[in-house]
Write a protein that binds this DNA or RNA. Structure first.
Length: 661
DNA sequence: TGAATATAAATTTTT
DNA sequence: TTTATATTCA
């Protein structure tokens, strides 16, 4: 007898399911995704492999919550970059055909911390107009204190400023004592332990005294705020009925704590992550946060997304093999319903330049085959690895944008301008003062420090008139002090400050840099960015937390509508996808980098990095390496392909040998 | 004697 | 492009 299918409808139909939705969730999502979207009354941990529609699921969940009638402002979406948050909210809004989703509170942990701390900094003994130090600013401070601490050089070698910053940052982000890290990772500096600890104390004191916070302080202080003051925690956390965190595998311990503190009352947290894509441990990220989540939130539901919608099965077979070799991972074999497609291609080029030429030629062929340039990307381990390629691309007239590496705000002349603005906003910003004082003839580190001492000891908020200073100070520096105090008294738009600073800076720049006309363009660009802001404070915060991504190279004449390929570091390619992807420099010694070869954890991270790179591809994946590379550092010649692709069996890829006509 | 400038060396990934 | 060291200047 023929049996008939009869489905029993869910007998308990919640309020949510009875209402009429604008969006057809059942049609648009697969069952796992649907469950993620509809589970809103308990903590949720989503393990989402590469390309499994993680972003889509988040967008639908935001839309769903908004459709349920919740106030969008009571939803908090924490993402890895603010661009990602904006993008998601925009897509949610267009799904709903209403702008209400754009009111959802979204951003990075750092920008969220910034917002919250601006309101409550007083509780921690900070002023609300604190300045955010970027990495190089923090390094400058450490350097200043470092030379002060050790005036005459002792026989022993003391860690360089970058090493110190690294060390301190790791300690803060992993909640590990400095001693332990020195013992484990920098045993050669054990002897200097005392000075290292002392310098850290001075560093913290300095920042507090001058009202400065570095990236780590933002997180640390937010955590402190939430954990030490119960009523304040209730106020802050109470604003959010739902908290969602993207890229949870790349959060560190402090961020994990913040999530816990925000979610502990309402049990309303959802996090999404993939342990196989954790690539930020150098910054203190720990993918084990994912596995500890159920301990923090005992009632949590774990949902796995394993159907891949991005890549062909041919590419997936390959990437599954790449990650299979990982030491510690969670088994989840990804599968796809897309056609088998072409196998990935591995190309051994003779030299770097041959590699570049291959990439260029292949891009042109793909273009011929109808793939738009916007759907092609070239990825690499370190930003300098693309230099040769960039030359060839330019020669072939292929337009490109580069992500990662040098940013507009890293350029020396832009940092100068920013320092002026920072000092106007926060007169206690010693780092900014230091930088702009040194621009003036006759002022070196010593005199700058003297001037700073005068400024800070005599004044709380206002800058004294120049006459009060000792005669030693060069007239140019007095002029500067006069200029800043005048600007500080004005209340104007950011762009007006920028314009007057530019007028002041012009002669200084012309004497400092020979190529000032080139730099002039950057300054104009900078002024036009300033136009978008209403307050100097928000402008400066954004510059530190979410700097404009365009590198100096591609500013200017670029037409936005023009088709262009993307070239990017793998780190900056996180979360993105293209039809065709080239991974260049897959050469053992460069990728994994030499630095990593003697550390198991580092090797594992590099492996995940390779995995992330390869899983960006939808249809075509090319992996190339130059066979003849002389490494100046070690004096060795690298010839082998990356060990991460070498472990993949031959029949999972094609090998192309380059022949010249 | 101390501070400014000229010279030489070196370079992962990012909020 | 930036940073440690050597040299010159007041």
């Amino acid at each position: 007898m023929e049996s008939k299918k009869y489905t029993i409808k869910k007998s308990v139909v919640g309020e949510a399911e009875r209402r009429v939705f604008k969006i057809n969730y059942e049609r648009d999502l697969n069952p796992d995704q649907l469950e993620v979207v509809r589970t809103i009354d308990c903590p949720v941990l989503v393990i989402a492999g590469a390309g499994t529609g993680k972003t889509k699921t988040l967008i639908y969940r935001v839309a769903y919550l908004v459709e349920l009638g919740g106030n969008p402002r009571s939803i908090l979406l924490l993402t890895f970059t603010r661009k990602a948050a904006d993008e998601m909210l925009k897509r949610a809004a267009s799904l709903l055909k209403s702008a209400s989703a754009e009111q959802v509170a979204g951003g990075t942990f750092h920008s969220f911390a910034n917002m919250t701390l601006r309101q409550h900094a007083k509780v921690l003994g900070y002023g609300e107009q604190f300045t955010i130090l970027d990495d190089s600013d923090a390094a400058d401070v450490v350097n200043l204190l470092r030379t002060r601490l050790r005036p005459e050089k002792k026989s022993q070698r003391f860690p360089k400023k970058e090493t110190l910053i690294d060390l301190y940052s790791k300690s803060e982000n992993t909640l590990t004592p400095i001693e332990e890290i020195v013992f484990k990772e920098y045993p050669r500096f054990i002897e200097q332990m005392e000075d290292i600890l002392k310098l850290k104390r001075q560093f913290d004191e300095y920042k507090r005294k001058y009202n400065l916070m570095d990236y780590d302080d933002l997180l640390k202080n937010l955590k402190e705020l939430l954990s030490q003051n119960e009523s304040l925690r209730k106020t802050v956390a109470g604003k959010f009925n739902y908290v969602m965190v993207d890229e949870f595998q790349d959060t560190n311990k402090v961020q994990g704590e913040i999530v816990r503190l925000l979610g502990m009352d309402k049990e309303n947290v959802m996090v999404v992550g993939d342990d196989a894509q954790s690539i930020y441990s150098f910054r203190g990220a720990n993918f084990r946060n994912i596995f500890e989540f159920p301990n923090y939130f005992p009632g949590c539901k774990v949902i796995k997304l394993t159907e891949n919608y991005r890549s062909t099965q041919g590419i997936l077979n390959f990437t599954n093999k790449v990650i299979e070799a990982a030491k510690e991972k969670f088994d989840k074999e990804l599968y796809s319903r897309k056609k088998a497609g072409d196998k990935p291609v591995i190309v051994a080029a003779e030299t770097e330049n041959v590699q570049s030429k291959f990439v260029v030629q292949r891009i042109l062929e793909l273009r011929e085959a109808g793939i738009t340039l916007n759907d092609i990307a070239v990825l690499f381990r370190s930003s300098y690895l693309s230099f040769d390629l960039e030359i060839e691309l330019t020669r072939a007239n292929i337009p490109y944008v580069k992500f990662g590496g040098m940013k507009l705000v890293d350029a020396a002349h832009i940092k100068d301008i920013i320092s002026f603005l920072r000092v106007i906003e926060n007169p206690r910003d010693a780092v900014g003062w230091h930088r702009i004082l040194l621009l003036h003839p006759g002022v070196g580190p010593r005199i700058a420090e003297k001037i700073l001492d005068n400024l800070t000891s005599q004044r709380a908020e206002n800058i004294p008139a120049p006459e009060e200073h000792e005669a030693k100070i060069p007239s140019s520096a007095e002029e500067l002090i006069g200029f800043i105090s005048e600007e500080g008294r004005r209340k104007s738009q950011p762009v007006e400050y920028v314009e007057s600073v530019l007028r002041y800076y012009q002669p200084l720049m012309q004497s400092k840099y020979d190529d000032y006309s080139k730099r002039q363009k950057d300054l104009e660009m900078f002024a036009s960015i300033a136009e978008r802001y209403k307050s100097l404070q928000s402008f400066l915060s954004d510059l530190a937390l979410e700097p404009p991504t365009e590198s100096v190279v591609d500013l200017g004449e670029k037409d936005k509508k023009e088709e262009q390929i993307t070239i990017s570091t793998i780190h900056s390619a996180k979360g993105l996808e293209w039809n065709s992807v080239f991974v260049i420099w897959a050469l053992d010694g460069k990728f994994p980098s030499m630095y990593a070869t003697d550390d198991d954890d580092a090797i594992e991270e590099e492996r995940r990095l390779m995995y992330v790179a390869c899983t960006r591809a939808k249809d075509n994946l090319y992996i190339t390496y130059p066979m003849n590379t002389y490494d100046r550092e070690s004096g060795r010649i690298f010839t082998k392909p990356s060990r991460f692709i070498d472990v993949v069996p031959q029949d999972f890829y094609e090998k192309w040998n380059l022949v010249f006509e």
